[in-house]
Simulated assay, not measured.
Amino acid sequence: MPTLIGRRAVLGALAAPFLAGSAEARPPFRLREDPQPLLSPPILDEAGTTRKLDDFAGRVILLNIWATWCPPCREEMPTLDRLQSRLGGADFAVLPLCINDAGIGRGRRFYDEIGIFDLPLYWAEALRVQLALAFIGLPTTLLIDRKSREIGRLQGPFAWDSEDAVAQIVGAF
């Protein structure tokens, strides 16, 4: 015999997603108890210098892997810019790693189009980044400790300038 569901139950179930708190009302990372060493692909900066992740050791790094053709990446980029403006310095840096096939120039045009002012720009070959950092989708963001070890990873976009994100990142200092 079929079970009848009342109108209120159906309406409540349909409204629940709209009543729930924001997905960003939480810290972005489940922090690792066992920080993992990372391989580094060659990373190119805008001056043409090739770098490795170890070149950024000594600071906490938020490594964001993104591409200009990725809508969620485009959406979260201003929040990364605001995070860098707020926390960037001797203890912390955002390292946005563009993996566009068109190279670093396409990343610069995107920054200029949407008004990114405080983020540096880095580029690496997509395949090398995928092999070194074992990510699946874009955007993927890694929280890296002062010894260049991964302590957190998030796949998907996030409001990086939210108070929860800032608190968790500052706690990693």
Rank of each mutant, 00 (worst) to 15 (best):
L11S: 11
D112P: 14
D91A: 14
A93W: 00
E24K: 12
R146G: 10
L83H: 02
S22P: 06
A13S: 11
C73A: 08
P72E: 04
D34F: 08
A9V: 10
R109V: 03
P37N: 04
I169R: 12
C98P: 11
W123P: 04
I116Q: 05
R108P: 04
T140W: 02
N100V: 07
P157Q: 07
E76V: 03
L80R: 05
A102H: 02
F158M: 10
E75R: 15
L14V: 06
P41V: 00
L11H: 10
W123C: 05
F173E: 10
A165H: 05
P27I: 09
K147F: 02
I5S: 06
M1I: 06
L95W: 03
T68F: 01
L44G: 07
L38K: 05
L83T: 00
F117L: 09
D118R: 15
L14R: 08
Q168S: 03
L19I: 07
T140Q: 07
P27E: 05
L97G: 09
L97Q: 13
R7E: 09
P27Y: 01
L95S: 07
S40H: 04
R153E: 00
L154Y: 02
L63K: 13
R32F: 03
G21L: 09
L62H: 07
F135K: 05
A25R: 15
L62G: 06
A9Y: 00
D118K: 15
L53P: 02
L39M: 11
S85T: 13
R153F: 00
L63Y: 08
F158C: 06
L142H: 10
T141A: 04
E125D: 12
D91K: 15
F110I: 06
E24T: 15
S22C: 04
G88I: 11
L63W: 08
E163H: 07
L4C: 09
R51L: 14
K52N: 10
R108M: 06
N64W: 03
L83K: 08
